[in-house]
Nucleic acid binder design. Structure first.
Lengths: 133, 133, 133, 133
DNA sequence: GTGGTCTAGACCACT
DNA sequence: GTGGTCTAGACCACA
C-alpha cells in the first residue's frame, strides 16, 4: 500500500522565487532527503492549495513541472505519486548541468568578501546535509 | 588614457535568462577575469545595441544594473567606465547572497550522479581560476 | 491580511527631478513615515500609472529601483509589497552616502543667511520627526 | 588692480556629478571660503579648459551658471570676475531653499544606521569648516 | 489580474 | 557623439 504523506512545505513571502518554484524546489528536496519515498502519494492539487492557501493552478503548475522532470507520476483518478528514480540525463548532459550550476554560482558570489575555500566549505556542508537527512 | 575595450559578449536566444541579464552576467565575468580593467571605457549604449542587434534600452537597462551593483560608472556625454571595486553590501546582505547561491546550486545539482566532494572540488577549481586570471 | 494602501504621491512637472525619482522619493518618505507598514501592498504598476497619468514603464522603473534598495518586494502575479527593513549597505557605503548628502546640503545652503547652527537645528528637528512618526 | 587667481579645482572621475557641476560647486566653495575674493579675475574659458583637460564648452556652461547665480560677472573683453555679493533671494525663497535642502538630505540618509545626532554633528562640522577656511 | 521584458522612437542633458 | 528619461504598445510569466 502506498503511504500518504503530508508535505511540510512552507511558502515564504520574502522569497525571491515565484510560489510554484518554491513548491517545486521544496518537493525536490523532500524527495532527495528521503522524506518522500518512491510510491508515496502526494496531497491532491486542491488539498495542497487549501493547505498553503495558494491558487490551485499554482499547485498544478508545480506538479506538472515535477512530472516533466520525471520525479512525479500522475495516475489518473488516483493522484500524484513519487516516481521510481530513472536517470534521464546522459553523462554529457549531466556535465553541462554541473558546469552551468558552477558558472551561475560563480557569478552570484564573485564579488563577495569570502574566500573560495570558505564558500566551498559552506556549500559542501549543505550538500552533505541534504544527503544525510 | 583609458583603454577602449571590445566586448566578446554573446546573446544566446535559447537561454532562460532575459537578454539584459545575459549582458550583466557577461560583463561581470569579464571584469572578474581582468579582461575589463578599472577605468576601461565600455562600448556605448547604442554601439553595443547595434553589435548585439538588440534595442538600446535593453543595453541601458543592463548598464544601469551594473551601476547599481557598483561595477560601472556612468558619465553623461563621456560613456560608461569600469569603476574602482568596493564592497557595497553589508555583511548580512553578503551572507544572504551566499546562502541563496548555495540553495540554488544545491537544487540544480541535487539529482546528478556526482558526489558532494566531486562537485565542490570542481567548483573550487573554477573559483580559484577566476582569482588567478 | 495585507493592507492595500493608496499613495498620496504628487508628480510636480516643474520639479528638477525626473518623474520616476519623484515617485521613488515619495514612497521612501511614506515608508519612513510609517504610512506604508511592512507587508502593505502597493498600487499596481498599471494602476498607479493611470492615477498619476504617466507611462507604466516609468512606474515599473521606480518600483524596480526601490526593490534594488531593499525597500520593496516584487511578486509576479501578486503585486509589490513593502519589505522587511534590513541594512543592505556596507559601513563604507553608508559613510560615502552620508558624505555625499552632506556635501550636497552644504552646496545648496552655502549662500543662505542662516547660521550653521540654525540650519543644523532645523535639520535635526526634521530627522527626529521622521523617527517619531 | 584685480588679483588673478589660479583655481585649484579638481575633476574627480568617480564623482557622480557631471563635470560642469563639479566646476560650479568647486568655484562656489572657493568663493565661500574666501579663496576667491570679490573682484578676482578667473582663468579664461580656454585656459581653464586646458588646465582641466575638459571641453571648453563645459567650462563656458559652468561660468554661465555662476553668472546666473549672481556669483560671477562677465566683463566683455576682460574676462570673468567674482561679483560683489548681493542677496537675491527673498526671505521666503531662502526658507524654501533650506527646506528643500533638508528634505533632500533627509531622503538620502533616511535608511542609514546613523543617529540623527551623529549626522547633524558631522554636518555641522562641515558647515563650520567652510566658514572658517 | 499581477509584474517583467523588449521594441521603436522621441526628446533632453552633457561633452 | 555620449547616457538618461519617457512614451506607446506588444508579448510573456505568474497567480
Amino acid at each position: 500500500m502506498t503511504k500518504i504523506v503530508a508535505l511540510a512545505l512552507q511558502i515564504v513571502p520574502g522569497d525571491a522565487r515565484p510560489i510554484f518554484r518554491q513548491i517545486v524546489d521544496g518537493i525536490r528536496e523532500d524527495i532527495a532527503n528521503g522524506k518522500l519515498p518512491v510510491g508515496s502519494k502526494l496531497p491532491s492539487v486542491r488539498g495542497l492549495a487549501m493547505q498553503l492557501t495558494v491558487n490551485a493552478n499554482t499547485i498544478a503548475k508545480a506538479y506538472n513541472e515535477l512530472v516533466c522532470q520525471g520525479l512525479l507520476e500522475s495516475h489518473k483518478g488516483l493522484g500524484m505519486f513519487i516516481a521510481k528514480p530513472t536517470q534521464l540525463l546522459s553523462d554529457e548532459a549531466q556535465e553541462n548541468c554541473l558546469k552551468a550550476a558552477i558558472a551561475s554560482f560563480n557569478n552570484a558570489v564573485m564579488y563577495l568578501d569570502y574566500s573560495a575555500e570558505e564558500m566551498t566549505e559552506q556549500l559542501l556542508n549543505e550538500l552533505k546535509k541534504l544527503n544525510r537527512d
